[in-house]
Amino acid sequence: MYYNHIMLMKAPASLSVFVCLYVICILLEVLVLNVAQTQAQATTAPNEVKALNALYEKWGISANQNQWNISGEPCSGAAIDDSISIGTDGYNPFIKCDCSYNNKTLCHITEMQVYSLQVDGVIPDELWSLNFLTNLNVGLNLLSVPLSPSVSNLTAIKYLNFGINTLSGQLPKELGTLPELTVLYMDSSGVSGEIPSTFANLRNLESVWAFDIELTGRIPDFIGNWSNLKSL
């Protein structure tokens, strides 16, 4: 009788442990499901999808759907794979995205490479609407006409490369309104003229490449205030 009494006393404790473990398992499953659903629902901002499609159509290029742009969703595949970055061999044209917005349900295009693809003609206005870009590389192409003042829309840009192209006209003063700009490649780009006074605002510049362009006028004194500059 004493033994049976002990067993009866232990049974409720064992049952409680079992119930607790069961509840914990259910909560973990719900958490994993919610995370998976949140990640699955992350989509590219519609205006950026429209701009990217228009841009690529006008340039006559397309994404490799085995790498990214899976099922028509630009921010997918390699575009959100942290192990693959801009400049990785075999990924060109290419974009990278940040899908941390709106509780990880919204993606913005933050990097773009269209490098050495013989793209010619103008730079479509749609490019300047991608204002979450921090890295833009359209170097070594055949892009023509002046660089648009709308480059000022790229307020988050840190790395900008439009070198080795067939652009024309003067350096737009709007380049000097990009507060985060740290690296600027404009060598052999076709731009010319004086360095705009607005460039005095580019205090975050670390590297400037301006070889083989027809700059005129004197070297501005404000370059001495580019305290972060490492190469010119």
Rank of each mutant, 00 (worst) to 15 (best):
M1W: 08
M1Q: 07
Y3Q: 10
H5M: 09
I6H: 15
I6E: 09
M7F: 13
M7H: 11
L8E: 12
L8P: 00
M9I: 14
L15R: 11
V19Y: 13
C20Y: 14
V23L: 14
V23N: 08
I24H: 07
L28N: 10
V35W: 11
A36T: 14
Q37N: 10
Q37M: 05
T43E: 02
T43W: 05
T44Q: 03
P46D: 00
V49W: 07
L52K: 00
N53I: 09
A54H: 09
W59Y: 06
I61T: 11
N64H: 08
N66Y: 08
Q67T: 06
N69H: 11
N69W: 13
E73L: 04
P74T: 07
C75T: 04
C75Q: 02
A79P: 00
D82I: 02
G87Q: 05
G87S: 04
T88V: 10
T88D: 10
D89Y: 13
D89T: 11
G90P: 02
N92L: 00
P93N: 13
P93T: 07
F94E: 04
I95N: 02
C97Y: 00
S100M: 05
N102R: 13
N102A: 14
N102H: 12
N103W: 12
T105S: 11
L106C: 00
C107V: 00
S116K: 15
D120K: 15
E126I: 07
L127P: 05
L127G: 06
L130Y: 11
N135G: 03
L140I: 14
N141H: 10
T155N: 10
K158C: 00
L160M: 07
F162D: 03
F162H: 06
L167C: 09
G169A: 13
Q170C: 09
G176A: 05
P179D: 05
P179L: 08
V183T: 14
L184S: 03
L184W: 12
D187L: 04
P196F: 09
P196W: 01
S197N: 05
T198G: 00
L205Y: 04
A210L: 13
A210C: 13
F211I: 11
E214K: 15
R218L: 14
I219A: 10
D221H: 12
F222E: 02
I223G: 06
S227F: 04
K230N: 07
S231P: 10
L232V: 11
